[in-house]
Amino acid sequence: MVLLKHELKQNLKSFVIWTIALSLTVIMLVGLYPSMKSQMDEFTEMFSQMGSFSSAFGMDKVSFGTFTGYYSVEVNSSLGLTGAIFAALTGGTILSKEESNKTSEFLLSHPVSRKDVVTSKLLCVLIEIIAINIIIWISLIVSVILIGESVDFKLLSLLHLAVLLNQLIIGLIAFFISSFQVKGSIPLSIGLAMFFYFLNIISNITDTLDFVKYLTPYSISEGADIINKEAINYKYLISGFIYSALSIYLSYKIYLNKDIK
């Protein structure tokens, strides 16, 4: 508990900055909706004629005339990428920073097991990702109420839950990277988050690469699929579950046996 508390305190400043930035983005984008509402039918028609560009971002399957359609394309997709970068940064630095900042000698010369260190840091990553998403979700609900839109809150929450699941998977893979990579863990983690994002875009463009959807966690948070089926497509979670379980297992395995620099 001492370790977890210490870890949460250490990350507090960056957590607050990210939370404010992402919540304000959501509030601002939701706030723009009433002024853009009248033009939405034209947007829908325009995007439907843009071929593979619209497909890439799932804009060919949703209607901009509804708030959920607007939210899915404008808010959820940008939150999907920025939130994943937050998750990649949080997970990708949490173990490696002790070695890069040379504090690991201080920490591990105390009677704390490496297992406890990994567990506390893992919990810290999960808590931060879940907490930032709860705050963003509250900001979303409050701003929707303020603009006076009648919205299917269950569907909206489902869209956001999918984004959360995506971030958790990215965060856990980044956590694994930070267990063995000391200096390059940040670019590697962010690079991986971007790679999965573009993998999803590619899979949206062509039907022949449908299997790629199973490889990237962004498929889970594909807004158009969730709106049309009114459910998260859980089959895309299989790869995410495998990535997460392997990442956790390997992080413990590596950190418990490595030479601390």
């Binding site: 250490q10 900042n101 040379k102 504090t103 000698e105 201080f106 010369s109």
Partner: peptide, 8 residues
């Protein structure tokens, strides 16, 4: 240790 490092 020969050089002491802590959380800045």
């Amino acid at each position: 240790p020969s050089e002491s490092f802590f959380y800045n």
